[in-house]
Structures are given as structure tokens and as C-alpha cells.
Design a protein around this nucleic acid. Structure first.
Lengths: 232, 232
DNA sequence: TCGACTTTGTGCACAGCTTCACAAACAAAC
DNA sequence: GTTTGTTTGTGAAGCTGTGCACAAAGTCGA
């Protein structure tokens, strides 16, 4: 039982800031590729699509890495943000569920590029097991625990059907994993100390539909409260 | 039927609330399938993974649809949330970019189920054009504007490589689309009035890595500020 | 009809995030 | 060294979202 003691050294970077750091990092990498040496908060904010004051406050949480009158050193800032995000080390990721989405994820180049290494592909379907995808052979879901332990997997991506997600979730947590990226359209129940991030295509579309409807109507129309024929 | 007119034109359901409505809707649909007739805010909140007070406040933005001492009528609430989100109408969606991700999206059942209809699949690669996926024939990206106009597409999903995303974005906006779901890892520049929602796998992983590192270290240790050999 | 019980809807305080505005810090030119 | 111009880092104000706690509003049994 490890009780988390709030560290004095814990600088407590706000969640909202953490969520934006990858954005800055991407913009900075683009600039580095184009040979840009230093960048002002104004320019970087523009590239990342945020307010420049917000950017400066975000970066100030990492430390005082800018130079007044000049801006930020691109390479230096890339290193600092990478270190803060933990990208200077290598993370072993396992993908559970090799359907259409799992395949897409396995083939997604963005993973490998920055500190994330796919260490395992698992599926319960015997027809899929043994298939070679993105250089890996798909293993049977029964191997889940052993794959996690033997290969030091610390992040698991769940891309299974909704019905299997909670069960997979329970198993990976029992195997010691505390970081999960969930693509299945269910709310996963997890104990304290486990981080779950959710990506839900259907929810994103529904949010867009809401705003689209607003734009079209200027708000929901008079709206009969309940359509004819529906029994309450 | 006495109908209380939604107050003052509902001029603002908070964004945070809108983002949660699809969650409630999903939980409610599950309950409806299991034959549940009414549900308390406590139970629904549990199923959706939120605080019950928050749930009640969220629902109160739609109107006063609960019954004190009883709870909410499941069917009625499903209808009200669906209407608010604009899911009682049919939305034509086009997917641009039929790579691994585009295919996964096209085959994703969750789209069709709830008001979203895939009205077009487009790609620039002649090898992919003509292929049949999820019952649709992939069309050439040149047809983008005509597909949007002829089929009344109002939501576009961009699943192209990063390099093509902005160009596609500009074209669909020029064609009148104002709702975009972007999977490409770039910040899209759009004029006011256009809604862009972004799904970024790499960013989600980086956020997980940050927390995972925190759990392992209790915060970044002493941290040499800059590794040896790196030139500033 | 009444009283006991349940559950909603919301006022309120607070916590966190965003944005403005500006002093402090630095570079460059002379 | 001094002045001029630029850009950071941050105090403060305002805004949004959260969660507690409770009165109001309803059900149900006697």
C-alpha cells in the first residue's frame, strides 16, 4: 500500500497546462525543423492556437526558461517540456483489441516518434492472433498479464468492443498498470490512483451536432415537449 | 399539453454540461434496454461517473424534467437530451482521408446508430478511390465540394495526414461546412463561426506519460537542467 | 387528510482557469 | 554607460465550473 504523500517538491502543474504542453511541443518541433532558433511567446502562441499570456503562464510553471527582450530558445524549451512530460524516457505501450481501430493505432506513426513504443498487440479472436501488424505479431488476450510484466508495459490502450472493456481494464490494473487510454464507449470503473483518459468519437460528434444545431436554429425551436404518440 | 417555454431562449448551456450530455444519454440508453423506467440522479450519476449534484445541475439547464421524490423518466429524458443535442435529426457526415484511421471510422458502428450517417468517403490516392468500405465507394478528393453540396454534408471528419489537413479544412469551409472533427495532428486555422473539435491520440498518451512519471517519481527529481553535450 | 419519507432544483462559497496590464529584465545601439 | 526598444513573468480581476447543503415538491401509506 503506497500512500501518496504530497511532495514538497511537487510543483503542481495545473491540468489545463499539462494538456497544452504537447501542443507547444509539437509547434516547437515544427519550428526546430525549419531552423528557428528562438521564438517569442506571441509567435509560439499563434502556432499553438492559444493566447500568449496563457502560454507564458503555462511555461512559467516549468521554470523561468525565457529571456526577456528575446524570447525562448527553441531547442532548450523542447528539452524542458519533453522532460516535464516524461518523454525523455521510453514508454512501453500495449494495445488490446486489434479491430479496425486497434490496427489504425498500431500503424499510427505518431506513437513511435516520441518516446512511445508499441510493446504488444493483443486480441481475443483466434483469427486475428498470429497476424503480423506494424512489425508485431498479435498475441492472444490470455497473454495479457505476462506481456505486461515481461515487457514492462506501463500504458495500456483499450480498443476492444464496449462489452469487453471493463474486464480488460480490471485485468491490466491487477497486473499493475495505472495508466489507461480507453477508446471503448463505456465509463470504466477504476480504483484511486489509476489514470484513465477517454477518447470517444461518438461524443465528439454529438458535441459538434449540438453547436451545428444552434448555428442553424439560433437555439432549439419552440419544441413541442414530447412528440405525439409517445407514452409517458 | 401545457408547455413551459424554455426560459429566455436557453441562451447558454455551459460547455462543460454539453460535453457531459452524451455521457448521460449513453447511460440512459443502457438503462432503457434493461427496461428501467425511472432513475434517480444518484443512480444515473453513478452510471455516468459524475457527481450527482453536477448531474442535477446539468439537467436543470435543459428544463425541469425530474419528479421530486421519484427521479427522472428514462424515456422522456432520453428524448429531451437527444433533442437538445440535435440527434432527433439526421446528420450527413463526410470522412476525408481513408487510411487506417479513416477505415476504422467508417466501420465504426457508433456513427450510424445515433443520427449520424456517413454520406461520403474521400481520398486523394487513386489506389484507394473506388474501393468499397462500409457500403460506400471511396470517391476522389476532387469531388469534395460537390459531395458536400449534393448530399447536404454538414459535418466533416478530417483523417488525412497532417500535411493535407489545413488544405482540406480550407476547402470544406469554403464549401459551407462549419463543423469539423479533426484527427490530424495539427492546429487548424479557421475563421470565426467554425467549430473544430480535435482528437489527438499522441497528446492523450503524452498526458498519461506525465502522470505516470509523477506516480513513479513523486515529481521530477532534482533534474539536471540540461544534459551534458547539448549546446545552447 | 396528514405526516413521514424521498429526491429534485438551486443558492452559495470556493477552487481553478483565463485574460489583462504592467513592472522588471534583458539586448542592442550609440 | 545610458538610452531605447522588446519581451518575459506575474499580480490582480473576472469568469466558469464544482460540490455542499437544504428548502421545496412530490409520493405513499395509514
Amino acid at each position: 500500500m503506497t500512500r501518496r504523500i504530497p511532495q514538497a517538491r511537487d510543483r503542481g502543474i495545473p491540468d489545463a497546462t499539462v494538456a497544452r504542453l504537447p501542443l507547444y511541443l509539437r509547434a516547437l518541433n515544427g519550428m526546430a525543423e525549419r531552423g528557428v532558433a528562438t521564438v517569442s511567446s506571441e509567435d509560439l502562441a499563434l502556432a499553438a492556437g492559444v493566447n500568449s499570456a496563457k502560454l507564458r503562464k503555462d511555461l512559467s510553471h516549468l521554470g523561468s526558461y525565457g529571456t526577456r527582450g528575446v524570447g525562448y530558445d527553441v531547442q532548450y524549451l523542447i528539452y524542458q517540456i519533453s522532460r516535464e512530460l516524461g518523454l525523455t524516457q521510453d514508454w512501453a505501450v500495449a494495445i488490446v483489441g486489434v479491430g479496425n481501430l486497434g490496427r489504425a493505432l498500431a500503424n499510427y506513426g505518431g506513437f513511435a516518434t516520441r518516446g512511445f513504443r508499441i510493446a504488444g498487440l493483443l486480441d481475443a479472436d483466434p483469427q486475428v492472433v498470429g497476424e503480423r501488424i506494424a512489425g508485431l505479431v498479435v498475441e492472444h488476450a490470455d497473454e495479457l498479464e505476462s506481456v505486461i510484466k515481461k515487457r514492462g508495459v506501463s500504458i495500456v490502450v483499450i480498443a476492444t468492443p464496449a462489452t469487453a472493456a471493463q474486464q480488460v481494464c480490471d485485468r491490466v490494473i491487477a497486473a499493475g498498470v495505472t495508466s489507461i487510454l480507453n477508446f471503448a464507449p463505456v465509463v470504466l470503473a477504476v480504483p484511486d490512483g489509476v489514470d484513465v483518459r477517454k477518447v470517444d468519437l461518438s461524443i465528439e460528434l454529438q458535441i459538434l451536432a449540438f453547436h451545428e444545431q444552434r448555428k442553424a436554429n439560433g437555439g432549439p425551436i419552440m419544441a413541442e415537449e414530447w412528440p405525439d404518440g409517445v407514452v409517458m
